[in-house]
Design a protein around this nucleic acid. Structure first.
Length: 995
DNA sequence: TACCTTGACATTTTT
DNA sequence: TGTCAAGGTA
């Protein structure tokens, strides 16, 4: 055995690096292409570093002739440091992107870099110029941009130009190729429609590329595509680059995409001194464009490739490795049979257990702990108790525990539980947008720019440093809302001025605005200034993260004035684009580490916990993209076997494998109990538990029942800082009887979330009406005019009606011109269709249009307005309700509380016998007919009664759920605030410097 | 073995 | 609000 010099003192490997035979083979390799398949924990980076050292020491290469490429800045820096420590020389270690960007820069072809969200925002702002017909919806203008950008980024990964795509569309038009999928599978489109969509995609792609070129901008993907194009175009440059880096080494090779591999192939040239190290079973960035077939592709480009497989794992116990292998080996082999290699996946050998056996030491290898739990809370409580138990027996540090999960939301219960038990922990990449501190700061900024942003001003008024009397404010708001006409907004600022303490708020806003303008402060500075003036915690880690985010924004190529107003507009789009402001945790802190599995890649922990290992949480279920990447456009080299769904499932399995192989000593996997006959957790846990060969390595058990009484109440109070004053405001007992008069939609709102119901009625904050609601109102008005005119015997002409609608819509104050235009087109179309259908059918005998009612239902006053009541041939009346939004289904019509209540009202108020109930969908121009039995009407009464009782009893608990994303109070709701427990906040000194 | 109903879930994020 | 798949039924 040969001993290499130790390269990693930081990792406390004080012993010299002892290479085994396989590692030595890789390290001693000199010329020609080589691939090293280095499984988890087999020392792949060490091998790479030792090979560089040897190339130099043996005189094969000068230090400057070596190029080492990685994917992350951190990995590149670490490698550079380790090499400097080992050789005392500087080696070129850089990321792929930096390398390509530098190449472009030297050629004078660099550009301003747009991140994905920035490109989204860029296109969103110019969306009218895209002239979209298919991929746009009036109600949500930017809805399909994400789907389109996904497709374009996929094109980049495959080095596909707009011209190639345009050619593809031409071939489609000629009928030479199979029609691709350009919408959800369930939407059956005509061939013409598909071609229209393809043309639209083609236009968007060409236009996007053109705009970026005109403004000298590009994405991270462009770093690759443009560098590749440059190398292909410029032979002299290519020759120079080849001469500059005769030896190229690539770490994490499994993350390479097609474009990157082609660049590597070009750079390596004839001599092909290309050395790739990685683990194909840990490829988890396919969604980022990494080709799941990177290793195969390498082999095809370089047929002389030597393959070395490292199989000795120095990290984990045999039990962990056996279980992990059982999971990963369900994936197909890494190489297909055509790849002429004898490589077959085999279980990694635990070097630790082998050594222990040799020295006849006791093996303290515990089996993998497979825990099933009945509910989330039980999972969190069992984990915490297990952690406490391990720490008691092994005296390890908190940072020896790593908690891994598939999605961020999976950690919430555990974070609470850890905080309750006073265990220090930190969360990697937590989104700070919903922390109270950041919400406060953003609200303050919004009112400084525009005091008329009511939701923000409301939040600011509730800050504890002001002494606004909430009861007084509430009654003032209610009084004014009661006087003014419905829909007329009363600015909160004007009301606030009349309430005690309100002046201070407005003064502070004014002062902040003056300071900002006097100092001509740009966003980052302005935010800090505002934070200080309003007394919100500048020192909080969340606020620091937000400030850093703003500072970075100021340096973006698309940022113009750098002023607060521009930033707030950006922030709004950023949210729409799905952006998150992620906080980096301090890895050195002695705290339990919580992160996603992606975040855990490359790390190791003595004790690993994997959460929610149940389908469809982890593995997550497949969701198809809106636009499929057509088979015909795939690079023939990179086309990997299997459809997207299969590839997705395989990647989930690799992700699970990555999670498991992070563990050194113990591994605990948690999954929700199955609901069928098989009570084991569905998914990979079930697979492992039922695998008899894993019996010695796996122990399945049920989670201990949670014992809430054990919680240290003092610690819990300490961990959750006192509720914000806003929360206290919103929790004030209701004024008056909110349930005195209900409507169908009020009952429904109460059923979805009692708190939302209360806030809507109580505070009467003027809310910006949704565009969809304004459109709906305009549409209702014109229909009413139409039926009224018929009843009065003076029917209006179609043109008159269309004009009425257009004028109405123009007057109703939709801010976005483009959106208004979309609605105008949509409304005109729907109206024309509706009128055309009306003209050919027998006109209904209309009794009432938009008729108000107020009746007693189950002892409660219920009010509403019926769109249309017709007399039917059999003497009954039919009720029609127009729907301007998404078309309602039969089931929705059958179950609608609104229609039931209308039926009850028609009976009560006028004594009508009710016949048909209809939702008339203007979209598609079809009526969905329904009926009500007495029993169903009784059910409706019961629903009203339930809601009325709940309201009377003062039950206004928030109900969290998917509906929260559409709730107007989302930014205020205390239930949706994410607090950072004490242990999370790093000391300010450890934060990144701001500039 | 093929449906259909019901319940549970809601992405990940190097550069 | 949609979607997927588990689990039950024809």
């Amino acid at each position: 055995m040969i001993f290499w010099r130790s390269v990693s003192p930081a990792k406390s490997r004080s012993a010299p690096f002892a290479a085994d035979d396989r590692q030595r083979e890789a390290i001693e390799h000199v010329h020609g292409p080589m691939l090293v398949i280095a499984g988890a924990g087999t020392g792949k980076t060490s091998v790479l570093i030792q090979r560089i050292a040897r190339l130099i020491e043996q005189g094969h290469a000068r230090p400057d002739e070596i190029l080492a490429l990685t994917y992350t800045v951190a990995a590149a820096a670490e490698m550079r440091d380790r090499l400097r420590a080992l050789l005392g020389k500087k080696i070129r270690c850089t990321t792929f992107h930096d390398f390509c960007f530098d190449l472009l820069k030297r050629a004078g072809k660099d550009f301003g870099v747009l991140e994905e969200n920035d490109l989204w925002i860029h296109l969103r702002k110019r969306i009218p110029e895209l002239h979209l017909e298919h991929y746009v919806r009036a109600a949500n203008v930017g809805q399909f941009l994400t789907d389109l950008l996904d497709f374009l980024s996929r094109c980049h990964d495959e080095l596909l130009t707009p011209e190639t795509y345009a050619n593809y569309v031409t071939k489609l038009e000629r009928g030479e190729l199979a029609i691709p999928r350009v919408a959800k599978s369930k939407d059956q489109l005509s061939d013409d429609e598909v071609l229209g969509r393809c043309r639209e995609i083609s236009r968007v792609y060409a236009l996007t590329e053109q705009w970026l070129l005109e403004e000298n901008l590009g994405t991270f993907g462009h770093m690759m595509t443009r560098a590749y194009a440059l190398l292909m175009r410029d032979e002299t440059l290519l020759a120079a680059e080849r001469a500059r880096s005769p030896f190229i080494l690539v770490d994490e090779f499994q993350d390479a995409n097609t474009a990157q591999i082609k660049i590597l192939a070009a750079l390596a040239g004839e001599s092909a001194n290309l050395f790739g190290v990685g683990d194909p079973d840990q490829a988890i960035y396919r969604f980022r464009g990494a080709s799941s077939a990177a290793f195969q592709l390498f082999g095809r480009y370089f047929s002389q490739t030597k393959l070395v497989v490292l199989g000795k794992n120095r990290r984990s116990t045999t039990a962990i490795l056996q279980c992990a292998f059982a999971v990963i080996d369900k994936n197909p082999p890494v190489f297909s049979s055509t790849d002429h290699t004898s490589y077959r996946r085999s279980p990694l050998q635990s070097a630790r257990d082998q050594d222990a056996k040799k020295s006849e030491a006791m093996i303290l290898s515990s089996p993998v702990d497979a825990v099933s739990f009945p509910a989330k809370e039980a999972e969190a409580s069992d984990i915490v108790r297990t952690i406490e138990g391990i720490r008691r027996t092994t005296h390890c540090q908190w940072k020896d525990f790593g908690i891994l999960y598939r999605t961020h939301s999976h950690r919430d219960e555990l974070a609470h539980e850890l905080a309750d038990r006073n265990i220090p922990f930190n969360i990697e990449n937590m989104d700070v947008s919903d922390t109270p501190e950041v919400r406060d700061l953003f609200a303050c900024a919004a009112v400084v720019v525009d005091v008329g942003s009511d939701a923000s001003l409301f939040r600011v008024a509730a800050l504890p440093q002001f002494d606004v009397d909430p009861e007084q404010l509430r009654s003032a708001l209610r009084a004014i809302a009661g006087q003014s006409k419905e829909g007329t907004a009363v600015p909160l600022a004007s009301v606030l001025g009349t309430v005690s303490g309100g002046h201070d708020v407005l003064d502070c806003v004014r002062r902040a605005r003056d300071d900002v303008s006097r100092q001509n402060a740009k966003t980052r500075v302005a935010l800090e200034l505002i934070a200080k003036l309003f007394g919100s915690g500048v020192k909080s880690a969340a606020v620091q993260t937000a400030l850093k985010f703003a500072a970075e924004w100021e340096n973006k190529p698309t940022t113009k004035s750098k002023e607060l107003g521009e930033w707030l507009e950006y922030l709004q789009y950023f949210r729409e684009a799905g952006g998150a402001i992620a906080m980096t945790a301090n890895a050195n802190e002695d705290a339990v580490r919580l992160m996603t599995v992606h975040g855990g890649k490359g790390l190791e922990f003595s004790h690993v916990f994997v959460l929610r290992a149940t389908t469809p949480s982890f593995p997550a279920s497949y969701r198809e993209t809106l636009v499929e990447f057509p088979e015909a456009l795939r690079d023939p080299d990179s086309a990997s076997a299997g459809d997207d769904k299969t590839l997705h499932d395989q990647e989930e399995r690799r992700l699970f494998y990555v999670a498991m192989t992070r563990a050194k000593d113990t591994l605990h996997i948690y999954g929700k109990r199955g609901i069928g006959r098989d009570k084991t957790p569905a998914g990979m846990m079930r697979e492992m538990i039922s695998n008899s060969r894993l019996q010695p390595y796996l122990r399945a058990r049920a989670a201990l029942p949670s014992q809430p009484e054990l919680i240290d109440l003092a610690a819990a109070a300490d961990a959750h800082p006192a509720e914000s004053r806003l929360a206290a405001w919103l929790a004030l007992p209701a004024v008056g009887d909110l349930g005195a008069r209900l409507s169908a939609s009020a009952v429904e709102t109460y059923e979805t979330c009692p708190l939302q119901f209360k806030l809507e009625r109580e505070w009467r904050l003027s809310r910006e009406l949704h565009a969809a609601a304004q459109y709906g109102a305009a549409m209702h008005r014109v229909l009413r005019t139409y039926f009224d005119s018929i009843r009065l015997g003076r029917p209006k002409s179609d043109d008159e009606l269309l004009k009425i609608f257009c004028d109405d819509l123009a007057a109703c104050g939709l801010e976005d011109d483009y959106q208004r235009e979309l609605y105008r087109q949509q409304g005109t179309q729907q109206l024309e269709d509706f009128l055309a259908a009306s003209h050919v059918s027998l006109p209904p005998q209309v009794l009432h249009t938009e008729e108000w009612f107020e009746v007693q239902v189950a002892g409660t006053k219920v009010a509403g307005r019926i769109d249309r009541l017709d007399r039917s041939a059999d003497g009954r009346v039919n009720i029609v309700d127009y729907k301007t939004g998404k078309a309602r289904s039969q089931q929705e019509a059958d179950e609608s509380l609104q229609l039931s209540i209308y039926a009850l009202a028609a009976q009560e108020k006028w004594g009508y016998r009710v016949g048909d109930l209809a939702f008339y969908n203007l979209q598609g121009n079809v009526a969905v007919m329904s009926k009500r039995t007495d029993f169903q009407l009784e059910e409706a009464r019961a629903r009203v009664l339930d809601a009325a009782r709940g309201i009377a009893n003062g039950n206004f608990e928030p109900k969290l759920g998917f509906h929260c994303s559409f709730c107007a109070f989302r930014g205020l709701c205390p239930a949706r605030e994410k607090r950072i427990p004490h242990s999370l906040a790093p000391a300010p000194a450890e934060l990144d410097p701001l500039d």
